[in-house]
Computed example of a mutant assay.
Amino acid sequence: MATVEHRENAVTRFAQRIVENVERVIIGKREQIEYLLVALLCQGHVLIEDVPGTGKTMLARALAVSIGLEFKRLQCTPDLLPNDVTGVSIFNQREGRFEFQPGPVFVNVLLADEINRATPRTQSALLEAMQERQVTVEGVTRQLPSPFLVLATQNPVEFEGTFPLPEAQLDRFLMRLPLGYPDEVSEVEMLRNLRKRHPIETLEPVAEADELWALYDQVTDVHVDETLEQYIVGLVAATRSHPDLALGASPRGSIALYKTSQALAALRGRDYVIPEDVRQMAALTLPHRLLVKPESQLRGRTATGIVAEIVERQPLDMGGVR
């Protein structure tokens, strides 16, 4: 296979500005920041999952600020109602009519913090918004702003007072992104940055939302060789017949893997996808769509481990791939 060339383009220049700006707030997580940009370029939603205190909320806020997008934070609790998400009509006595008061979902970047603490009824209020980019309240359908990105967080170690996300809603997230603890050097730098005031308070936009429209077209123009298309379908098909899985990835998983591979290639300065792009994004776009059999869970099998195993074993005909 020929040597892969990295060259600067509009996507890489845009990403570099955003990453460097977000890193003023979130230190030592360049790769995770880039993955969020991949989701943004695919117009997809992200489930950020990790233990408390790893910067999930701050990462979402820093990304929105860096691009000059309107940002709102929705703290999910068991008493949160669907109308608290989508909005409600309130009677205006002066005008003598009902007026619709938009909910927090009418925004460019919505942070649904601790989404698994909301009841299933409230969680379902996000389904139409995430998939159709619209909400229907009292029989009236209203379009959401564009771009529209849902960044949801959940703590995998807390189960008391939580409502696990159903497979239908998990499938609507383009990817699931773990953050992990920072290394010691990054954590020391973080402490120094917080001596006086939080860096998020002085963070300024370094890009404009209008730039995204041209970048969307550039990402969708990234070439995916027919061999890699077959490879993507083969990876997803392997999850459907795996003996440790009760549920494999849906066609939405194939689409997610395809689109994110294109976005990652563009972010890396290429106008074509390579096998490593697919392998890298499979670990983020497929595991949360799988359901491991109970008996396999008892043996320590996880969806992430199974996807890694499939990626390692799935054959790839390299002919014709640059």
Rank of each mutant, 00 (worst) to 15 (best):
N9Q: 09
S261I: 02
D244C: 14
R268V: 01
I115A: 05
I26E: 00
Y231C: 03
D244A: 15
R13N: 11
N155Q: 12
D50L: 08
E276M: 02
E226A: 02
P199N: 05
E208R: 15
L40A: 11
L144G: 00
A118L: 06
T285D: 09
R17L: 10
R61W: 05
M58P: 05
A214H: 10
R7A: 13
L267N: 01
E189W: 07
Q32R: 10
R301N: 09
E295V: 08
R176W: 08
L245D: 01
E167Y: 05
T3G: 15
L47S: 00
L74V: 04
R313I: 03
T119H: 12
V135T: 07
A246E: 13
R299K: 15
L165P: 00
L290V: 10
T304V: 12
S261W: 04
P156Y: 10
L151A: 03
L63C: 09
V11P: 00
E229C: 09
L41P: 12
V307T: 15
Q123R: 06
S146N: 11
I18L: 12
Y258S: 10
Q123L: 05
E229L: 14
S261D: 04
E20C: 13
P287Q: 07
P147G: 12
V88T: 14
E309W: 09
H198N: 12
G180N: 12
Q143T: 11
T136K: 05
N193E: 15
T239L: 11
E23S: 15
R133C: 05
P145S: 06
D50C: 10
V65T: 13
F100H: 03
M175A: 13
N108V: 09
P199D: 01
V222R: 03
L264S: 01
P205H: 07
W213S: 11
T302Q: 06
